[in-house]
Design a protein around this nucleic acid. Structure first.
Lengths: 340, 340
DNA sequence: TTGAAAGCGCTAACAG
DNA sequence: CTGTTAGCGCTTTCAA
């Protein structure tokens, strides 16, 4: 069953391709009779417009790629993806999610898109610039803030500091941390690690040796492993700040598996406010991220780059807020995980 | 900064487009000198091949769309998506995830793909057939087994029966169920509801009024709501079979919020074995699905449809297995969520 | 080894 | 209101 084209339909209906195209695209000035005839031919041949040809012709695809690499993003769950899709739809874009590594960005993209939303922490600037040079607008949504290309994110250093301070205010004194990439030099820490240290310093504390556990990905298993390492040490911490909710969820499980209680023995907080943490037990304390804000601004950046390809890079900071829940000792009113 | 094309590069290098194309595609018989010259021009102009044009020319995109609708799939978490992507990569495809509703399938697709993997329960056959007629191979991965088009899935009726029987074997006698679409007639239940009822019937039981709670989506909030309804009744169940792990996770939280214990007062089991359930507390009993098998077979179907567009629909059943964990009373060996 | 030119399916000038 | 045609960027015969 060969796939039929505009030309096939035109021949079948005994009209020109232009007329068929007009019908397909709802061009108003067509005689009712003609329209009927064309419609019939379309039905009969089961014609569908070829999106690729349209895109080539139009010079745009109306597609945005949300590229999710192994490093992920603290707040990126299905809900957040839907939020991004909604923000994109408001501006006439559709979103496709591409899971994969950096190669997908630096090298040839598998598919033409009008913009790339890069959901990854710590992406080096080179692929970014290559991408931008190749003409596709790209917005980074991750932790790194280095002035290369547009960037929309919360102030991660601040968020980490807020989370850590929340733990300190609850009376914890040996606050460990899980997160930060192992390749990152301890002397030049990422924003979240910097924020964590700053919070400790402000109250005259400092991370003890082994208190900072790096991880390669935001995965539950990594959080579990790291927390186990923390608890196996000579002086286990009384609280753990995790760079993401997924890490925190793994950490909570590790604490429990070690026969300790959360938050009584060890308090835990994450970043992201993903839905999973609202239903987990104990409900996960976290830093909520305004994903709608991020999505809206990011898509707006993409759209703007269409007109102003060479404008200066934009740096946008999204709101965040600490959400104390059970895992750091906050009593949650009975009966309901926070909705929405 | 205009985006450069093959022709630009050719002009810049003083050669024909054919030569540039040859260089870009690694055609071997090119003089080293020529290649250098062309490479230089490519660098300078920051040329990137236009995927759209390539796809149009090639008549294929090498892309598979994993379409995830609101109804979702019990087992579909990020891990499963990666498994699908890996299976696709083995056959030279790349996967993009499209979240959205059926319209994305029935109506014009936003982007040309070589195949569609439909991750949705209970999709009516019409859009499926329309899609197939339009020439794009489509494989359904959901619950419905109706002979329309290729289908790869576990035996959902059997899985539901196994899960319910697990609860019954643990001594539970009032087993409720959460799942099944509200639009579905109780007289013509979906496979999972049928399997659940069959398990009860086999031991001389039957669902009591209100014991079957339909839901519109596989979402934690829906499971929470449904479980609350169950527990608010005159005779709360001592066990709940949930059609998916996400529903089960919501249900567990609702039980706890009601001041009851899982599994002591209410045992809970789901379907899917998503990673979240391995880390939750209590660890979630579930029915594991062989996602690698499903992914492999589904991609193979797509590939096969390229050669045999009109072959008879294929129905493939994937393995499943009950995984008893804490939420149904199984003691999990200490210290570790099941890996992988 | 390289060049010229056709054509993938579609839309939009431009004519009529 | 409808038809003819050029061309989006690329690959690929076919010649040279």
């Amino acid at each position: 069953m060969r796939i039929s084209t505009l030309k096939d339909v035109a021949r079948h209906a005994g009209v020109s391709v232009k007329t068929v195209s007009n019908v397909v695209n709802g061009y108003p000035y067509i005689s009712a009779d003609m329209r009927r005839r064309v419609q019939a031919a379309i039905e009969e041949l089961k014609y569908r417009p070829n999106p690729t040809a349209r895109h080539l012709r139009a010079g745009r695809t109306g597609l945005l790629a949300l590229v999710v690499t192994g490093t992920g993003l603290p707040y990126l769950d299905d809900l957040a993806v839907d939020v991004v899709a909604a923000a994109a739809a408001d501006r006439g874009y559709r979103v496709v999610v591409e899971r994969g590594d950096l190669a997908a960005i630096g090298a040839a993209r598998p598919m033409a898109v009008d913009g790339v939303l890069l959901a990854a922490d710590g992406t080096p600037p080179e692929p970014i610039q290559a991408q931008a040079a190749a003409g596709t607008p790209l917005v980074r949504l991750g932790e790194t803030r280095d002035g290369h290309g547009d960037h929309v994110a919360i102030d991660h250093a601040r968020a980490a500091r807020d989370a850590t301070e929340h733990l300190l205010r609850a009376g914890r004194r040996t606050v460990a941390a899980i997160g930060g990439h192992p390749d990152q030099s301890p002397a030049a820490p990422g924003p979240r690690t910097a924020g964590y240290r700053q919070a400790l310093r402000r109250v005259g504390l400092a991370p003890r040796p082994g208190d900072e556990q790096p991880v390669r990905w935001h995965r539950r298993a990594e959080g579990h492993r790291a927390a186990r390492a923390l608890l196996a040490g000579p002086a286990p911490p009384d609280a753990i700040f995790c760079h993401s909710d997924l890490l925190a969820i793994g950490a909570v499980r590790a604490v429990v598996d070690a026969g300790l209680r959360v938050p009584d023995d060890v308090a835990v907080i994450g970043i992201g406010d993903i839905e999973e943490g609202r239903y987990s037990r104990p409900a996960l304390s976290t830093v909520a991220v305004d994903t709608a804000f991020i999505a809206r601004e990011a898509v707006a950046r993409i759209a703007a780059r269409g007109d102003q390809p060479d404008a200066a890079p934009v740096e946008i900071t999204a709101p965040h807020a600490v959400r104390p829940r059970e895992s750091s000792g906050a009593a949650t009113p009975a009966g309901r995980p926070l909705p929405g």
